[in-house]
């Protein structure tokens, strides 16, 4: 007879594991990936594959040779970082830059803090922030969707193949050149790989909520805040400001709200903390879009609110049982 195992209760274990969560996110990103392949062709596959492989491999190397700890590089978290980073890049980006960005995302954004669960900032956005500062031109050159899709050597034909993003157009004030809302919804506009199609992202987001990997609070409140604030501006002055539907469909807020704000590691733990986090990020995003120098504020809004998470967690505590007095 084998020895009995003695351990503390509970002896039952739920089915959720880190792998379950992380690969669930990867599955949820598939619709956005399909949309990016349709819009941007080979390059979308190449950029995503390079970022994914670099991230996983980089994490593996660091765990094996630097941290000398157990290898957990294949649990899916590095893969999520890689895919999300790729989805925040334009398809024409040189692949060596993708490699550099991925290494920064994993090495600086994640492993430097001690690995999974310890990083204060979303690693994919750290990587993207680094690339935006380092390669500003390549990072803001947006190939035209569909037209550029099946061209491999895109660099030599960039002039003919690029367009501004909807938000870039908006920043310049050319309201007449703005794309239709329908194009924004299905994603046939210029932009980063994974952010253009609101439809694909919403499908993925609903999958995540259905699998109980995320709750609806953060994405709904983030997008809701943006909708309300831009709506107020639009009501005040509808010639200088575009309607709020345009704002929530364009740029990275969909991808950010469903996939990057909800990153468990870098979001608050309590429900009310999450509310503050989402609303705060929404306010910052709108402020950057309407009054800032950048056309898009999604990345910065998330990174800034990431920095507030420890503070939010310290002061916003979950509601305790026994505080609701309804007797005597």
């Amino acid at each position: 007879m084998s020895k009995f195992i003695v351990s503390l209760s509970p002896h039952e274990k739920g089915k959720y594991t880190v792998e379950h969560v992380m690969w669930g996110v990867v599955i949820a990103l598939i619709p956005a990936f399909i949309s990016s392949v349709v819009n941007f062709g080979y390059r979308a596959v190449a950029v995503t594959a390079v970022a994914l492989i670099t991230c996983v491999f980089c994490e593996y190397l660091i765990q094996k040779f630097l941290m000398k700890c157990e290898i957990t590089a294949f649990d899916g978290s590095a893969a999520v970082t890689g895919i999300l980073l790729a989805f925040n890049l334009p398809s024409s980006i040189p692949l060596w830059q993708v490699v550099v960005g991925s290494i920064v995302a994993i090495a600086v954004g994640k492993m430097a803090f001690g690995g999974l669960g310890k990083n204060p900032f979303n690693p994919a956005l750290v990587g993207r922030g680094f690339m935006l500062m380092s390669f500003p031109v390549d990072m803001t050159t947006w190939p035209i969707p569909l037209k550029s899709a099946w061209e491999w050597d895109i660099a030599s034909k960039l002039d003919a193949m690029t367009s501004a993003t909807p938000l870039g157009v908006l920043k310049e004030g050319n309201f007449s050149e703005l794309p239709e809302l329908w194009d924004l919804f299905i994603g046939t506009v210029g932009g980063s790989l994974g952010e253009t199609s609101a439809l694909a992202i919403i499908i993925g987001g609903i999958y995540l909520i259905h699998r109980k990997i995320i709750t609806w609070h953060i994405p709904v409140l983030y997008l809701g805040t943006i909708f309300v604030l831009t709506g107020i501006m639009w009501l005040i002055n509808d010639t200088a400001n575009i309607n709020p539907v345009f704002h929530i469909l364009s740029g990275g807020v969909m991808l950010g709200g469903f996939f990057m704000m909800t990153d468990m590691v870098t979001s608050p733990m309590s429900l009310w903390g999450q509310v503050i986090f989402a609303v705060g990020a929404g306010v910052i995003c709108v402020a950057i879009r309407l009054f800032g120098a950048y056309p898009e504020g999604c990345m910065f809004s998330i990174l800034i609110m990431n920095a507030f998470v420890p503070l939010i967690d310290k002061y916003i505590k979950p509601k305790k049982f026994g505080t609701e007095v309804n007797y005597g």
């Binding site: 020895k3 009995f4 003695v6 351990s7 503390l8």
Partner: peptide, 8 residues
């Protein structure tokens, strides 16, 4: 000799 195994 160990008769059981502690898991925790």
């Amino acid at each position: 000799p160990r008769k059981t195994e502690y898991d925790g």
